[in-house]
Structure formats: structure tokens, C-alpha cells
């Protein structure tokens, strides 16, 4: 009940901010601009259309996640509105969870708008609807939730600039860390090996939520991979949120 109130309030804050609409607008706008870009090539224009569209949805939803994630948590502390909540009979745990759920709801709405507009756009242009787009939605949403939880973690103890930098860096690392698999066999020194594996397992492996390529190329994705990726996402979010709660509980205002 209290978590819900905090979540809804967070959502309200996000949607009453113009930047939220601006980012959604840009996401939609750039996914439309894929039509323009696709006109410049010869051959499979639908492929280009989807590539550019999904990429812009990705980019702008990640921007929304990082922006709102950091802004909305840190702002509470910075503007001391957190006093308002924490002076009520509210557990600090509930504050973190409420924030997370509110941001999740925000992302859900933003993503729904962008993806459904783009799907309709594709439908009008090509006359086809690819149900795999739902899978894209779920995967991207999971990735965004991981980003949100990370931004909550950082803003629970750091400043917004640093938090944004940390979150963006972690996002970038998350998309390249899979390349570790290419050289892990070359590690011999046990200490190096330990650290390399430690980092590999510690950082979020976000590339597994990137199914844009498979989606556009119509590559099959096995159920096993889908479930394992989603489970990974849930585990990761839980772990990060638990650490955030741990830190936030200790925090003094």
C-alpha cells in the first residue's frame, strides 16, 4: 500500500516532467526517421527500417531510464522531499522498492508508447506485424529495469553527476563484457583468472538482452535462452535492490 503510494507518486513526478515527453517524442521521431534512412539504400529497406527504429527506441529508452532513475531518486534527497516520506511510518526499504516500481511503471509506459507506435508504423509500411516484437519489449524492459536498479543504487550514496557517469559506464561495460569469453581461455595466472572471472560475473551482462539482431534477421531464440536471460535479469535486479536498501537504511539525512 505504502510502496504503491510511493511508486505512483514517482510515476506522477516522471510524467509531469516535460523531459519525459521530449525523450519519448525523440524516440518516436527517430524511429520514424528510419523511413528516410531506409530510402537511401538499395535492397532490403524493411531491415534498415527496423534496425534504425529499434536502435532509436533503445537509445531513448535507456536515456529515459538513466535520466529519470538518477534524477528522481537523487532529487528526493537533494530537495529533501525524502524527509516528507521518511518522517512518516514508512520503512526505508519501502522507499527504495516504491521508487523502483514507480520508475519501472514509467519505463513500461514509455516503452509501450514507443514500441506500439513503431509497430503500427511498420505495420502500415509493410503490412506485417512481427509477434517477436513482444519479446523485444520484454527483453528491453528487463534491461531497463537493471539500469534503473543500478541508478538507484548509485544515487543512494552518490551525487547525480557521478551516478549518471557510473550508470552510463556500467551500461557500456554491460554491453561489451561478453567478449570476455573470447579470451578467458588465455588466462593462466590464477590471480588474474580470479579477478577476471569475478568482474565478469559481477558486472551486468546486458548484451544478452539485446535481441535486435536476431529479431531483424528472424533468427530463432530458444526458450531456454529466453528463460535463463529473464531469470538472470530478475536475480540481478534483486541483488542490486537489496544492496541499495542496505546502503539506504544506513544513510543519515
Amino acid at each position: 500500500m505504502k510502496i504503491r503510494a510511493i511508486a505512483l507518486n514517482t510515476f506522477k513526478e516522471a510524467v509531469r516532467n516535460k523531459i519525459f515527453y521530449l525523450l519519448i517524442f525523440f524516440g518516436v521521431f527517430f524511429s520514424f526517421s528510419s523511413k528516410l534512412i531506409s530510402m537511401l539504400t538499395i535492397g532490403d529497406t524493411l531491415k534498415i527500417l527496423k534496425d534504425v527504429g529499434f536502435a532509436s527506441i533503445n537509445l531513448f529508452s535507456v536515456l529515459i531510464a538513466i535520466f529519470t532513475g538518477i534524477n528522481l531518486v537523487y532529487k528526493e534527497i537533494e530537495k529533501k522531499t525524502v524527509y516528507f516520506i521518511l518522517s512518516k511510518p514508512v520503512e526505508r526499504r519501502d522507499f527504495i522498492l516504491g521508487k523502483f516500481l514507480g520508475l519501472a511503471l514509467t519505463m513500461f509506459v514509455a516503452l509501450t508508447i514507443m514500441i506500439s507506435v513503431f509497430s503500427i508504423f511498420i505495420l502500415l509500411l509493410s503490412g506485417t506485424f512481427d509477434p517477436f516484437i513482444l519479446l523485444y519489449f520484454i527483453f528491453l524492459f528487463t534491461e531497463l529495469l537493471i539500469i534503473i536498479s543500478i541508478s538507484i543504487l548509485f544515487s543512494s550514496f552518490s551525487t547525480p553527476i557521478l551516478s549518471s557517469i557510473f550508470t552510463i559506464v556500467l551500461y557500456l561495460i554491460g554491453h561489451v563484457i561478453w567478449t570476455f569469453n573470447e579470451f578467458k581461455y588465455k588466462l593462466i595466472n590464477p590471480i588474474e583468472k580470479f579477478f577476471a572471472y569475478f568482474i565478469y560475473y559481477l558486472f551486468p551482462n546486458l548484451e544478452k538482452f539485446n535481441i535486435k539482431g536476431a529479431l531483424v534477421m528472424n533468427d530463432p531464440i530458444s526458450i531456454k535462452i529466453i528463460l535463463s536471460s529473464l531469470a538472470y535479469g530478475i536475480f540481478y535486479i534483486s541483488a542490486i535492490l537489496l544492496i541499495s536498501i542496505h546502503i539506504f537504511k544506513r544513510r543519515e539525512f
Binding site: 531469470a231 536475480f235 542490486i240 537489496l242
Partner: peptide, 18 residues
């Protein structure tokens, strides 16, 4: 909370490994 997050990290490692 920290303890639970550790458990989740083990799960994360396991799922990444598989």
C-alpha cells in the same frame, strides 16, 4: 539485505555460467 544480495549474486553467477 547484504546477505540476501550475496545469495542473488551467486544465482547470477550460476545463471551466467550455464
Amino acid at each position: 539485505y547484504l546477505l540476501f544480495s550475496l545469495i542473488f549474486f551467486l544465482l547470477i553467477g550460476f545463471s551466467q555460467y550455464t
